[in-house]
């Protein structure tokens, strides 16, 4: 069989690694710490939850540095073959699919509230007595600015800051695409510049988003406590913001690697994965802009 070995390039199966169990420990500490921190914060008690949470995040950071470091070293040593590259790409695609389903849960909650829960509370379908007996003053409108129990808020408009943020994120997807084209054509300088521009746009988006939250809380009275409209607004935009943050971190790591001279036309999985993630986050925003802000 040894005569055939040239035809076949071996799939790289890594040796033992310390990082997975460090990662498991990190997630365990984060879950335990976050759980206790939530409980303590809700009772406004002093406790140890946030220390455990902090320790978990620290361990997670160490794990990510160590694990990514190993991956990058192995990749640079040429241990990876085309088949392994396919594994990574498919793995990343399925991961993004799982993220789509995560957002679907929150979009589902939004659609259900708008199409079913709120109209029913207002007496639609066969729920006339619900409206009459429980909350006769309740009006079923969307955005739901007055909840059945009387909490009021103002709706967030789509013009102005949200529209600008949409433009910023769409442009950042385009600039990232240009960065990718530059990588394919081996124009390193252009690659670096387009990538930096993308990251800057992402950070501006996050800044505006933070400003919008301040505006919502301070001026509009739109908070996590202001009924189903505020709930869907904050959880959808909040989880989206977390994903932009993660995407920006990934792009910053990729920028570091680009500056270190990594990635070529044929060896660019890390860059590609981060780019896919960024485009995915952009698409989620477009849906969000339509269904949360405009309609």
């Amino acid at each position: 069989m040894s005569t055939k070995k040239e035809e076949y390039s071996k799939y790289y199966v890594p040796d033992q690694s310390i990082w997975p169990i460090v990662g498991a420990l990190a997630l365990g500490l984060i879950a335990f710490g976050a759980g206790h921190f939530t409980i303590e914060a809700s009772k406004q008690e002093a406790g140890y939850g946030h220390y455990i949470l902090g320790a978990g995040l620290l361990v997670l950071l160490i794990m990510l540095v160590g694990w990514f470091g190993d991956q990058i070293r192995e990749s640079r040593q040429g241990l990876y073959n085309a088949q392994l590259g396919r594994s990574y790409k498919q793995g990343m695609s399925w991961f993004i699919f799982s993220e789509v389903m995560f957002f679907l849960a929150f979009f589902g909650a939004l659609f259900y509230a708008r199409m079913i829960a709120v109209p029913w509370l207002g007496g639609a379908s066969n729920n006339v007595s619900t409206g009459e007996i429980l909350w006769p003053a309740f009006e079923a409108i969307w955005p739901l600015t007055t909840t059945p129990d009387g909490t009021t808020t103002q709706a967030m408009g789509w013009f102005g800051l949200p529209l600008m943020n949409t433009a910023i994120l769409v442009v950042s997807s385009v600039t990232l695409h240009f960065a990718h084209v530059a990588l394919e054509e081996n124009k390193r300088k252009a690659l670096t510049n387009w990538l930096i521009l993308t990251i800057v746009l992402g950070l501006i988006f996050l800044g505006f988003q933070g400003y919008e939250y301040v505006h919502a809380y301070r001026d509009l009275g739109l908070t996590m406590q202001s009924g189903i409209y505020g709930n869907t607004f904050f959880l959808l935009t909040g989880f989206h913001g977390l994903h932009v943050t993660l995407g920006a971190i990934l792009l910053i790591i990729m920028l570091g690697r680009v500056l270190a001279g990594h990635f070529t036309k044929d060896d660019q999985f890390g860059f590609q994965a981060a780019a896919w993630y960024w485009h995915f986050v952009d698409v989620v925003w477009l849906l969000l802009f339509v269904f949360v802000y405009i309609i």
Partner: peptide, 23 residues
């Protein structure tokens, strides 16, 4: 959503805030 309903004052599953336990 269960976590935020219990600890952060959201009302996904609470009709008083416009949500619905059936959701």
């Amino acid at each position: 959503m269960v976590l935020t309903d219990k600890y952060f004052g959201t009302s996904f599953f609470d009709a008083a805030g416009g949500g619905d336990p059936v959701l």
